[in-house]
Design a protein around this nucleic acid. Structure first.
Lengths: 252, 252
DNA sequence: GAGTGGTCTAGACCACCGT
DNA sequence: CGGTGGTCTAGACCACTCG
């Protein structure tokens, strides 16, 4: 039995190409494949993982999207320097996941947890249909090294999210949604701006200024259900957003 | 001859799947395919474009990445509401391209254009090898509705970019790089932060405050050559960064 | 010329959705 | 059940790089 046969028993529901991508990604992270060097060729990977070339290529494409490798025709796939851009945050990632993978020691304090009363102005006009929908409102303060860094204000809709405990909100709402409720979080839109904030928020974030960086996001399940709106107020001096981007072939 | 045969004569060097993606994207933009509705099924698209199913799927995957559609198993591909998230800027896009596609009437004023003297602190430690390399330094002020919105400071390396005229800098450096120099711009990393700026810059941007949003980016060609570093200082009150993101399957 | 990645194909089997 | 998308395969041909 080859590598994949073994892996597949453990991680159910993952495709062969996902497993190959995951495996190569891990080897890049652990410097088994080093930055600047070439990956084994596609035909070598084909025999290594016991799969067809197209499957290997699908895996490599994922790594290309992520910015882990760059493919060059006639040469091979070069491993890019992950260290250099201390880790893209792009993609939907929960604070708990970030905290874990970046090894920050961060703490989450639940400020508010109650039934949703009303949407904020920002979302009201855009989502008139959600206006009357039931939901949960959560306010959470994120502390990094004991200093307030972010205030997250989440509007979770019921359905699909009917209940929420303080404990879950402290740990990871995304973990709860995916692993308990078995919902399939799929995509999000984010808008980053700089906004004036009120005094209450200024105190919470312990800011000198009345300005904060706001990330407003809309989060959707794979069936296109809107399940969450978030206003994320960041302490400007601690704010950092890292992104990896590829040039679009398709012009809109 | 089918649709693709015709298109292919015009736009050389594009793959069949790119053309299909481009075509569907255009039809979505022109509301020929409407938000919330389903695209024709993959097998229908297969016969429509006279290609194999995998080729159609490759095209649909590109649209999925872009956030134009969402595929649902057993149902079909739903067109997402492009209007709702007034246009993702993510991906490497030049100011000239943005200006055109967003129909802003923006003006670019070249403030400085000279030989590169030295890299700024921010980049110095990270790119010691580039320190002695020759290059060009360009400073450009972007005005939107006659008000200063962004100051772009570009460091272009020679090679591959040996000369640059004021005219090119005013119009579009990316256009020049791609269409004149025939270089293949491929990927970039971006870091967004909020920074203190000096008085000179404050004046240029006509800011009340000494704070600006900084986007620092590193831009690479498809052969992994670093060809440009950019510091982009944004007027906070005019700053807006829009992003579309999909949940990562691969955990790093 | 040998080896690399880029594209496309035709066919197969599966999982899921609706009627 | 038929139609949808999800995955995988084996094979073909091409364009490119490098010695």
């Amino acid at each position: 039995m080859n590598i994949i046969g073994v892996e597949r028993k453990v991680r159910l529901m993952k495709s062969k190409s996902d497993i190959i991508a995951q495996d190569i990604a891990a080897k890049i992270q652990h410097h088994q494949f080093k930055a600047g060097e070439l990956l084994p060729s596609e035909s070598q990977l084909t025999t290594l993982y016991g799969s067809s070339r197209e499957t290997v290529r699908k895996a490599l494409n994922q790594l290309t999207e992520l910015g882990l490798i760059q493919k060059i025709r006639g040469k091979g796939s070069i491993v890019l320097d992950l260290e250099k851009f201390s880790f893209p945050i792009s993609g939907i990632t929960s604070f708990a996941e970030l905290n874990k993978s970046l090894k920050m020691h961060a703490v989450t304090r639940v400020v508010t947890l109650k039934k949703m009363a009303d949407l904020p102005e920002l979302f009201k006009e855009k989502f008139p249909e959600q206006k009357k929908q039931a939901g949960i409102y959560v306010e959470r303060l994120r502390l990094i090294d004991d200093e307030p860094a972010v205030l997250d204000c989440d509007y979770l809709f019921s359905p699909p999210i009917d209940h929420l405990t303080k404990k879950v909100a402290e740990k990871s709402i995304y973990d709860y949604i995916e692993n308990e409720l078995k919902l399939d979080i799929s995509y999000a839109t984010k808008v980053i701006t700089v906004e004036k904030i009120d005094e209450k928020m200024q105190k919470l974030l312990q800011l000198d200024d009345r300005l904060a960086v706001l990330i407003a996001s809309e989060n959707y399940l794979s069936d296109t259900t809107l399940f969450q709106l978030t206003l994320s107020f960041h302490n400007p001096s601690k704010f950092k957003f890292v992104d990896f981007a590829r040039r679009q072939k398709i012009k809109l």
